[in-house]
Simulated scan of single mutants.
Amino acid sequence: MQRSAAPKPPSQFSLTYGHLWFVLPGFIAFLAVMLVPLAIAFGISMTNWSGLGNDLSFIGLSNYAEILTYWPFYRAAFHNAIIFAAILVFQHTVGLYLAVLLNENPRFMQFYRTVLFLPVIMSLVATGFVWTLMLSPNIGLINPLLKAVGLGFLQGQWMSNPSTALAVIIFVTAWNSMGWSIIIYLSGLQNVPKELKQAAEMDGANSRQVFWRVVFPQLSPAFTALTVLTFIGTFRTFDVVYVIAGPLGAPNFSTDVLGTLIYRTAFGGSSFSSADIRFAFGVAMALLMMAIMAGICWGLIRMLRGREIET
Rank of each mutant, 00 (worst) to 15 (best):
I170Q: 02
G179R: 08
L288G: 03
L20E: 08
E310L: 01
T127I: 13
A41H: 06
L96C: 02
A76S: 13
D203G: 03
L261R: 02
Y70P: 13
H19E: 05
G43L: 02
F216K: 12
G18F: 11
G26A: 07
L141D: 11
W298P: 13
V149Y: 03
R278Y: 10
M34Q: 07
L226F: 08
N161R: 04
N252F: 15
L186F: 13
G150E: 04
W212E: 07
T93Q: 03
I262C: 10
T255G: 04
Y263I: 00
S50Y: 03
M285E: 10
W298E: 12
V94D: 09
N54A: 12
W298L: 15
A86W: 14
I296D: 04
L135D: 12
S136R: 01
F253W: 10
N105M: 09
N138I: 08
N161G: 05
R213M: 02
G128R: 02
L135A: 06
I139N: 06
L151P: 14
I83C: 07
K197S: 14
G299Q: 02
I40S: 08
P221T: 07
P10G: 02
P119D: 01
T227Y: 15
I59W: 05
L154S: 05
P193A: 00
N143P: 06
Y242E: 06
G18C: 03
I44F: 14
A41I: 00
A167V: 09
M34G: 04
A126V: 12
Q157A: 11
T93Y: 04
L38W: 11
Y185T: 12
N48Q: 02
P137M: 07
M122W: 09
E308M: 05
V243R: 03
S207M: 08
P9C: 02
L61I: 14
T16N: 13
L52S: 05
E104G: 14
S11T: 09
T127H: 09
T69V: 06
A148G: 11
M1V: 10
V192S: 09
V115P: 14
R107A: 15
I59R: 09
S207V: 02
T69D: 15
M122V: 15
R302F: 09
L38I: 00
M109I: 13
